[in-house]
Design a protein around this nucleic acid. Structure first.
Lengths: 341, 341
DNA sequence: TAGACCTGGTTACCCGGTTCAGAGAGGAAG
DNA sequence: CTTCCTCTCTGAACCGGGTAACCAGGTCTA
């Protein structure tokens, strides 16, 4: 049971291969009657174009690539990537584009994967995520000449097209809110320091606190364990913070547990803010005040841009909506003892 | 800057295309000296085989497919799939296999995606997950004649190869443990009832409780909200359960919050068990007793089997390790008032 | 009535790599 | 000195589509 080809259809319809090709691609050159006959036969024998044969003629691969360079244990925990992927998928599926995915262990391997996929014409373009400061991948991808959309800050994307959201804005909004509530010692449990968006948040955080609050930033690897450890250390310090901003929700939840374990009541003694909202933020007690972003939409925009790029359009950097603060039960006025200190 | 082809290499080396093909594929038919020269040139100009051209000759696509049929919001929350995928990736990456991923909205679309990928010879095989009772996809895939590994119970996999783990065993172990702790009213907040593994757990749960405890099962859609609602209802009933088993960890965490909100202390008044362990289970307070499975390993085994199947080997159904109970702080002896009831 | 122009179809060749049937060259055996 | 074999290497065909160029016949226009 071989796969049917256009030659089979041509034989059945009593026309040449070319007529079949034109008919099935909606090109002019065949009568409507013949076209209908050919389409009916194709339908009947379940013909599908062989993507390899098409690709050979320089056609699109109808596929884009994404290599993820994070350890599996973090990937599994952070909803961010799955949400991003499902957003990307939503757009790709409409255009029958597929997503080629590979988990890699380091940047060198990641560049190699992209080079291979592109070299083998398996993909028409790719996404680049988790930008590092002075990222080697940017240069490599620029050299390939492949359409790429960087999901990250344009300042580090070189000549590649990028999509980003203003994390600084979100930081300022959050700090402003906490300061208004009377908080003067605010800590941030941040993610990996080598990531560009961590650096952006770090800087914005320091600036936003300038003159109104004492900022403390602790870097972690995004896992709950490190989030818990950082929280324990922060809450044990003599001038402990009255508010903590966590760079993801899993760490915020971990921090919340540590606070409970240390008899620090949230939000009475400590306010907690989580970056990136997920159902998780809402099921814990108290529900977490969170920086909400529509991540699937973010992915969808990135996908649209990549497809436009592949179609040959020029795509300027695009700033997506910044995360917005969604106040819930985990934040409140700074504790009274603050004034005494 | 066109991609180099074997013709370019042939021209440079002063030999025919055929010699180049043989040389680069390690086939006999060229002298070692020529081979070395050709390989060196290929290396130098950065040649990569065009996968399309290879596929055209009936070669493998070096790619397998996975279509996920779950709403995005659930995908993002459940670590299961990301962990499964990273396990699959680990094996695929070693053999330079890629994973083609698509999120679909229903089974019909899913079958269509597989049919297209296979028809277009984009993939050499696929995984099938989230089996339903009397699943239409099984028949469709059998008809395609494509190598498929079903991640689910063999009884519903038809003639397709399958990999599964004995959820019944895990249920029995958990119920036995709870009964030994004195629990007599045990509830289960289960997942989607149409999924085969939910049905398997349902049955095993009913059987395990036979004669030793009163089982109650509530079905949900795996989200925290429904988990919370189910918990609220269970804890409000006059003969409320003293232990609840949740089908995933997000619902268990939600349930834990509901218990706290209702002043039901865990584990004093209520024991909680989560199915599938994740860092999340360990960061909440108290840490959750969980049914631990090595999901990445599960995915890895599935991938190995699929590759074997593609290689033409016959692959019998494979039973992976059952989930093992990892007791933590959320389970304890049944409350004293139990004896009065 | 001749030339230009559509219509519906064909032939020929390309894409990049694989495979198969030989063709020379060189060496060993008879 | 043949004959035969082996080792290298090549030309041609092929995989399944796409595309350019062309051609026969009918229609329109000058």
């Amino acid at each position: 049971m071989k796969r049917p080809t256009i030659a089979d259809i041509a034989a059945r319809a009593g026309v040449s291969k070319v007529a079949v090709s034109y008919a099935l691609n909606g090109q002019p050159g065949v009568s409507e009657a013949t076209r209908a006959r050919i389409v009916a036969i194709a339908e009947e024998i379940g013909w599908r174009p062989n993507s390899a044969a098409r690709a050979l003629n320089g056609a699109r691969a109808d596929c884009v690539g994404l290599a993820l360079c994070r350890p599996a244990r973090i990937l599994g925990v952070e909803p961010f990537f799955m949400e991003l992927i499902s957003g990307i998928e939503g757009v790709l599926a409409d255009r029958s584009y597929a997503l080629l995915l590979q988990v890699v262990t380091d940047h060198q391997q990641e560049s190699e994967v992209y080079r291979r996929w592109w070299g083998e014409s398996r993909i028409d373009g790719a996404f680049l995520v988790d930008l590092h400061t002075s990222d080697t991948r940017v240069g490599e991808l620029e050299r390939l000449g492949m359409p790429v959309v960087v999901i990250g800050h344009p300042s580090e994307s070189g000549s590649l097209s990028s999509i980003w959201s203003d994390d600084g804005q979100a930081v300022r909004e959050t700090v402003g809110y906490l300061v208004a509530l009377g908080h003067r010692r605010i800590a941030r449990v941040a993610g990996l320091p080598e990531l560009v968006h961590t650096a952006v948040r770090d800087r914005a955080f320091a600036e936003a606190c300038q003159g109104v609050a004492e900022p403390v930033t602790v870097h972690t690897d995004y896992t709950g364990e490190e989030g818990a450890r950082a929280t324990r250390r922060l809450l044990s310090s003599p001038d402990r913070p009255t508010a903590i901003i966590y760079d993801n929700d899993i760490m915020a939840v971990a921090g919340l547990s540590v606070a409970q374990e240390m008899r620090v009541e949230v939000p009475r003694d400590l306010s907690v803010v989580a970056w990136d909202d997920s159902p998780l933020s809402q099921v814990v007690r108290p529900p977490l005040t969170a920086l909400t972003r529509d991540i699937p939409a973010y992915g969808a925009h990135a996908a649209q841009r990549l497809l436009a790029l592949i179609a040959g359009e020029s795509v300027p950097p695009y700033e997506d909506q910044a995360a917005a603060l969604t106040p819930r039960g985990s934040t409140g006025p700074a504790p009274a003892w603050m004034s005494r200190s």
